[in-house]
Design a protein around this nucleic acid. Structure first.
Lengths: 199, 199, 199, 199
DNA sequence: AATGAATGAGCATTCATTCAT
DNA sequence: TATGAATGAATGCTCATTCAT
């Protein structure tokens, strides 16, 4: 499985280089050097520079999806499921800063650069959130008035922005676990004191 | 948005061009043409291409801050204040897609490219959220256990991700008003049915 | 004589700037700033950048010619006259390093850049040497076999190369006076021991 | 002058282009076209434009040094040695006008542009003259009062200025051989009639 | 499959010159 | 006369991509 070996070596190298320098500042020769292959070799596995970026997304997020799915499969409670998603996402992003960078920054650019980059794994990933919410609504655990399509964005956006903090270098005293609890606490119970009404 | 002088003509042009093509794909000559000035004229007002980007942020977000501050000044209730922030942010981002693009994408890049781009207007803007939360905590309206530093990120991230939807071209049936209500509803009351406990 | 005042202010400034940065690296705005006039003002007195360079030569070398001519007018002996020329040239070049730079470097370039830059003051200056030699030959002081056209080049080249040393920063233990004596000694008496024959 | 590899093809092309247009007016694309390589190829062999110029000096003068050294190795008489140097220098400069131009003009500029351009081949070349003079002094052929450090400058300056004539387009009726004799005659025997004293 | 030398299109920036005031 | 803001042509250098080996 030599070919596949080169392929993933390049993916891994590209993830690292894109994270460090950003897509536009990354040079093909940087990736080649990091992957310990010749520049030209990269073009045996990818069509162009942009194709590498897309592949990085698909590969890395694909891995993430598999891992989260496995964890969710062992859980029924929609509250726990959301907690599992949040914890896993934040844990991975804190550990794998390169992946975090790429998702936070480069993924956003790519959405603009390729119009037909839809139905991708990123969508699949974020849609796991709305699926959980819908499941909770069916079980009368989440309120029916919540729009899963909006709530999934809000939830993912919250996690994404928080993990962005860590990459920008903002120091924080909170652990992943505490942060996960805070986010869950807000999203499940809201910020209001129990006796205070929402206007 | 009167562009009486060259400086703001260039800022406006750059906002448009960066939004359309992204910072790295934007050429100085594009901005110059859009601003109807000569290429060289741009360098009478800005040090380099990157300086234009930073200026766009500072200028545009500065405007936003002024507007939001004015709206907040007329309000005391921390619940209403958060609503005002959310509504204004989403309204502006929906109307001014160029600004939205630039904030969502280019701002993230710039944070990586310049290490000393701290204490900027963007921070000021996001810190308005935590100020509101702290105010609400003092008034026993928001729960004391909420960490303002985390909650501000979560809240801004939620709004940001939602407005990103609009720019990527995802169609939605919800108005700004409905979306604002959903986000507020989630953040203030949470997603749980009232009688359901958070584990 | 206001106009003439500006004119020479610009010439002086240009001499300084060309010497410091070289013709190609010198900017019009540098000269303008040094002369304390506006950029555009320079074009009221000179046609273009190159015209300034030529004017610097003509002006500065013109001054030199006047001074040397005055000194030579008081002397009859062709040996003394050559000494006067050498001493004056070396003295001025040691004192006015800017002028030296311009003559040594920029003058050479200009000769290539403008084909019709003949019959100029520089030629007049160098021809003073051949005139002295011819005079000496008429008086049977200089050997008739010496070709004044070649000797003038050799003599000027020798002085020029020596003064170039000083500008490049080569330190030397010889004074202008000692150097003048050495050059004269070589050119008048040659380097051979009296009893040794030139093959 | 076989230009088997890219490096020397570029050196040769650069010598020609610098000679024709001067360093600052020469475009990289001119050199590339002359060398029949792509613009970018030049940067595989040289760091920047200036690096090319320095390389031209080192390469071309290096060749000259080798040739002159070989000729001098076969000669003992310091008088003949100086003659050999002069003849070789003038011959090469008359034949290779491009090299002459570059030495006369661009070399001078470069000395100003890079402070650490010392101990270079040009110095080695000029120091061959002072070595010859010192040798002659040890053999009591050249007068002990001659300062080799000054005399080498004078001698080289004389040759340089004479060869400059040829490039500027001044027509002359003297051959290289006659010119060499004139210069030698002046430097070895001086310009005075034998019976006339140096003041 | 793998290499890496070679390519050449592309662009940020500079600066001599102009001209409205 | 004098100004200096505005112009826009010009170019050194980079780097994604190709292709002969």
């Amino acid at each position: 499985m030599k070919a596949s070996n080169k392929h993933s070596k390049i993916i891994n190298a590209a993830t690292k280089v894109f994270a460090k320098k950003g897509f536009f500042n990354a040079r093909i020769s940087d990736i080649a050097k990091e992957a310990k292959v010749a520049d030209g070799t990269i073009y045996l596995y990818f069509n162009n520079k942009f194709d590498i970026l897309i592949s990085v997304f698909e590969e890395e997020i694909g891995n993430l999806i598999v891992q989260v799915e496995k964890l969710l499969a062992a859980e029924d409670d929609p509250r726990k499921m959301l907690e599992i998603f949040a914890r896993k996402h934040l844990t991975v992003m804190k550990k794998n800063k390169n992946l975090a960078e790429v998702i936070q920054i480069e993924l956003r650019q790519s959405a603009k650069l390729i119009k037909d980059y839809r139905n991708n794994k990123f969508s699949v990933y974020v849609n796991m959130i709305s699926s959980i919410i819908k499941l909770g609504q069916e079980q009368n655990i989440y309120r029916a008035s919540i729009q899963p399509g909006i709530a999934k964005r809000a939830f993912f956006g919250a996690l994404d922005e928080i993990s962005r903090m860590w990459n920008v270098g903002v120091t924080t005293k909170y652990t992943v676990e505490e942060t996960t609890q805070q986010v869950l606490d807000i999203f499940l119970c809201g910020m209001l004191e129990p006796e205070v009404s929402f206007l």
